[in-house]
């Protein structure tokens, strides 16, 4: 009887572990950002050439303090970034006066021409900068691209979205930022 209980116990424990592994989904998608509730890391990065006449040579987070902000990380090789870009372009056209949008091309070293092609393809009117050394990527604790950070007027990160951002997420988070 004891032996049977032992076998059943061990089998249940192993089965439970197996089920946990199967059902936990993609763990990287469940990890909350360590930046939530903290000041968004400062950065100053060069702008893509098409924005320089309007915004200057570089874009600095600190210089735009006091405005709610959406920071979107993307790369020219990333398929989900192509999926979300039209949503971002639409949201910027509709809410760009209330919230500052910034795009950061990252983990995409040297592919400036491809980045510019991406920007032109979707008519991204908001400033897009180049993070060639992926340093800002590390500062924001990125797990991949695309990722989008929502920063309130006090400069505090309120939400991080991993993967392509939808119009529903943008609408809800912009609403929370300007409330």
């Amino acid at each position: 009887m004891t032996r049977l209980l032992l076998v059943v116990g061990v089998a249940s424990a192993l089965g439970g572990l197996f089920l946990f592994g199967l059902l936990r989904g993609r763990p990287d998608r469940d990890i909350p950002s360590n930046l939530i509730g903290r000041q968004a890391p400062e950065f100053t990065l060069p702008l893509h050439s098409s924005y320089r006449s309007s915004y200057g040579e570089t874009f600095s987070l600190g210089a735009n303090a006091g405005r709610p902000m959406i920071i979107n990380f993307w790369a020219s090789w990333c398929a989900p970034c192509y999926q979300e870009a039209p949503e971002l372009a639409t949201a910027w056209r509709e809410r760009g006066t209330e919230v500052l949008f910034v795009g950061i091309q990252t983990q995409d070293r040297g592919r400036h021409a491809e980045g510019l092609e991406f920007i032109n393809r979707f008519g991204l009117g908001f400033p897009n900068v180049i993070d060639d050394a992926s340093l800002v990527s590390i500062d924001y604790g990125l797990f991949g691209v695309p990722e989008t950070f929502f920063v309130n007027a006090a400069g505090v990160v309120t939400y991080r979205h991993i993967g392509p951002v939808s119009s529903a997420v943008l609408e809800a988070q912009i609403g929370a930022l300007i409330r």
């Binding site: 983990q107 995409d108 070293r109 050394a133 992926s134 340093l135 990527s137 590390i138 990125l142």
Partner: peptide, 10 residues
């Protein structure tokens, strides 16, 4: 991966 290379540089 590019990010890992950049992390090593950091």
């Amino acid at each position: 991966a590019e990010l890992a290379v950049q992390m090593r540089a950091r």
